[in-house]
């Protein structure tokens, strides 16, 4: 019979089909379990925690299936474990980069310098962390590009997490005319900031004269906002400040130079 055909050693085609069948069933089972975990825990766990749980369950099921089919293929798992040390060394040398990425992935999950959904900068890549796989991290750049960064690079690079702290500060420079009242301008700016819900009450915003410029008295405006909202606040407030100043009759001057023409007495 064709199923009894020996492939190698004592392994027949039937054994191979058995292995294939078990692995396919395990893969389907893993997918179904993962889908159900996602459905039932979607509202109960944070997205990044859920992703870690889902991956752990998925790889556990696949791992158990792989170990369970080893005896069918004539491989004794206990012997495999004994040989694991030597095999690990061999595989380690052969696939150093992959193992480095894998270990970095594990450390990323444990140390968690970045989470799924964080806005980060790694090297020359800035964007939102979409997923953290075992050997790579997926980032969607702010202009919508898909970037896969190996975990080793993520782990060894300096990471800037824009939402690592709950609040962040941004600044404007606002120039007003030398003839305008600085105190009044500061009041107007503070009032505009006060009216914005996400310009934080505490730490309080600051408005102060930063320098006396060539054409304007330059006010520095410092505002704190929730890290998740700061860019929206930054985009909205500057124009509102400009409009509010103009409504109060305070000019935002453009660069200018006063030229005095001296009347030379005729000779």
């Amino acid at each position: 019979m064709i199923l009894d055909t020996v492939i190698y050693g004592e392994i027949t085609l039937f054994n191979l089909l058995q292995v294939l069948f078990i692995l396919i069933i395990a893969a389907i089972l893993a997918k179904v379990v993962v889908l159900n975990i996602r459905r039932s825990l979607k509202d109960k766990l944070r997205k990044d925690h859920l992703e870690i749980l889902v991956k752990a369950v998925y790889y556990t099921i696949i791992g158990v299936a792989v170990i369970s089919v080893l005896p069918i293929l004539g491989v004794n798992p206990s012997g495999f474990l004994v040989a694991g040390g030597i095999a690990g060394l061999v595989i380690g040398f052969a696939s150093q980069k992959i193992v480095a990425n894998l270990i970095s992935g594990v450390f990323l999950v444990v140390e968690r310098p970045v989470k799924i959904g964080d806005q980060i900068n790694i090297g020359d890549v800035s964007g939102i962390v979409v997923d953290i796989h075992i050997i790579s991290t997926i980032i969607r750049t702010f202009d919508g590009l898909y970037v896969r960064v190996p975990n080793e690079k993520v782990f060894t690079s300096s990471i800037t997490n824009f939402v690592g702290n709950v609040a962040r500060r941004f600044e404007y420079e606002v120039g007003i005319s030398y003839s305008d009242d600085v105190d009044k301008a500061s009041e107007v700016i503070i009032k505009v900031i006060e009216e914005h819900p996400f310009a934080l009450k505490n730490p309080a915003p600051q408005v102060f004269v930063d320098r006396l410029g060539e054409s304007a008295v330059v006010l520095r405006v410092r505002i704190w906002a929730p890290s998740t909202e700061w860019f929206g606040v930054r985009m909205e407030l500057l124009w509102k400040i400009k409009k509010a100043l103009e409504e109060e009759g305070i000019k935002v001057p453009f660069p200018q130079r006063v030229v005095w023409l001296r009347d030379e007495p005729s000779r």
């Binding site: 505490n202 730490p203 929730p226």
Partner: peptide
Amino acid sequence: RQKYTLYGDVSTGKICRY
């Protein structure tokens, strides 16, 4: 009126409705 604030410091504090 809608306004938000920070309770605690920037690293470990919490954003709160104020």
